[in-house]
Amino acid sequence: MSNVLVVAEQSRGTLRKATLSALTAAREVARRTGGTVSALVLGSGAAAAAEELAAHGVAVRLADAPVLAHPLAEAHAPVVADAARVAGASWIVTAATAYGKDLLPRAAVALGAAVATEVLAVAGEGAEILLRRPMWAGNVIAEVELRGTVKAFSVRPTEFAPAARAPGGSVTPLPVSVDAASLRTRFVELQEVKSERPELTDARVVVAGGRGTRGDFGPLSGLADDLGAAVGASRAAVDAGWVPNDWQVGQTGKVVAPELYVAAGISGAIQHVAGMKGAKVIVAINKDADAPIFQIADYGLVADLFQAVPALRERLKAG
């Protein structure tokens, strides 16, 4: 029994893309342990998401019931445990999103499973699976072993390529036995962020500013809008009160790993770098040629951001 179960994430019938990264990680484990991969979609009216996931060549069990309408860990965790038993899974894999991080450890207790979170890579040799995960805000990478018969982990979506579409998938229903009356958690509301911009930790592109903005985030916000990017900030900018706290990228703020990170007017203090060094491509724009940010940037431009950023926007528009 070394099958792998992927716990998918969907919202109103739309599959969240991070799930496809979890699927990739799950297939890597299955390839090594010789098991099969199946997936679980939970929700109410989630069939479309299940079909979409099945279109990536995986057998999907759909737990569709009103009691699962909202992503409550208390309601979803027992279903995950049921599905794992049904699938004969000894590995449970999900994406390290807010949903996955909330749900997985709770489900793991029901299965007596050990859990690793924010996994960056599947390591080890042969059937011996070791998982690489960041510790101390990514200053150190740990290679961990999970002991026990059932194991679970969440993956950082940016570290695993999303699975491609493939034939051979299927959707079968999974009966849901959770009793709504027994739940002690009630969903009240979800207030979606009004911003047109994506969530900082989720964004494909992050445009961030620091002390060099001197408090004027206008040009950076414009660039972010052009790119569909989230806006981040260094601690210096947050401490100065220029931008809200939840914009802070860094060891004590958010840890991001977008495809593209544009650091403008950010010197590159260790504290900040800890939060963004996982980015695929880092661009630094700073007028101080000696700013430490250039030591980690893939592309460095020594320039005044108030000239360079508008110029970059012009260039983007020109295509």
Binding site: P71, L72, T97, A98, Y99, R184, T185, R186, F187, V188, E189, L190, Q191, E192, V193, P198, E199, T201, D202, D246
Partner: peptide, 13 residues
Amino acid sequence: REVDGGVETLDVA
């Protein structure tokens, strides 16, 4: 609570 894409409110016993 902070969730991806917004803030959710839960009512817990």
